[in-house]
Design a protein around this nucleic acid. Structure first.
Length: 270
DNA sequence: GCGACAG
DNA sequence: ATCTTGTCGC
């Protein structure tokens, strides 16, 4: 798939002020409500998808040809020295229909709030190799949960004009409506509200959710929730629904988990 | 001046 | 993100 909004392609050579200005423009172009045709129930995955097998399930059985089901993609990056590997995995149900990757040299260091200018280029290069057009894309990192409501998932979504969901392991900014310190039950979600750190939104606006995709039985030990936010053309509620529907026994939703594995696999080769 | 900070 | 063995607890 190709870039739809070339003016938003992340340029690492911009000054910090220019990057921030671009992010405010991106946030204004972003749609934080549902504008897609994916019913979360239609993408539900019951158990883990088998390792690197294209076209068949992990138990060796061939899946039903349900070509009407939506395509859900996951994208993740791995790093080798000064190069970034971006890997994309596309699923239809529990079937892997396509995997692509791209390698790009990193031009700038990681700066909180400006992640898309470091990793965005490699991600767009990987999507340029993709034949299928995903109905939803899970991006590793924040979307609307961002100082200017323009995190990596939002930047990629708006630039490609594809529905995206941000899936992060840590909270960048915003305030959880209730403490995340306690142990949350599997399936639970806690709203993340905009605060003074989020300069483009009114305080109290829900910009995402902490989502508990997995939890231990034990009383003392617990898994931290994921931080899910709208990237583009997806509401916060639906973003949380989609992540819970595609989580299949692991903390990360399957598309993201498989992209994670694929990026590591590619990293070992080149 | 101090704290906070996705990947 | 990445460097890395064992270890504690499901």
């Amino acid at each position: 798939m190709d870039v739809v909004r070339p003016e938003f392609v992340p340029d690492p050579s911009l000054s910090t002020a220019e990057m921030e200005t671009l992010q405010r423009d991106i946030a204004r172009a972003a749609v934080f409500e549902d504008d897609h045709a994916v019913d979360p129930e239609s993408v539900a995955i019951d158990g883990p998808v088998g390792q690197s097998t294209l076209g068949e399930a992990g138990d060796g059985s061939v899946d039903e040809p349900d070509t009407d089901r939506p395509l859900v993609a996951g994208v993740d990056q791995a790093f080798v020295g000064d190069r970034a590997v971006s890997a994309v995995v596309v699923l239809r149900g529990r079937e892997v229909v396509e995997r692509v990757y791209a390698v790009e040299s990193t031009e700038i260091p990681y700066v909180p709030g400006l992640l898309s200018f470091r990793e965005g280029g490699a991600i767009l290069s990987a999507f340029a190799e993709l034949d299928h057009e995903p109905d939803i894309v899970f991006v590793d990192g924040s979307g609307r949960i961002h100082y200017r409501e323009a995190g990596l998932a939002t930047h990629v979504g708006v630039t490609l004009d594809v529905p995206t969901v941000g899936v992060a392991k840590n909270l960048l900014c915003g305030t959880p409506r209730e403490s995340l310190d306690r142990k949350l039950p599997e399936g639970a979600r806690v709203p993340i509200d905009a605060d003074d750190e989020v300069e483009t939104a009114e305080n109290g606006v829900c910009i995402g959710y902490a989502v508990q995709t997995r939890q231990y039985e034990s009383e003392t030990q617990y898994v931290n929730p994921l931080l899910v936010s709208p990237g583009h053309r997806v509401s916060a509620e639906t973003a949380a629904d989609l992540v819970l529907a595609t989580a299949a026994g692991y903390k990360l939703p399957e598309p993201t988990r498989l992209a994670d594995d694929y990026a590591d696999e590619v990293k070992t080769d080149v």
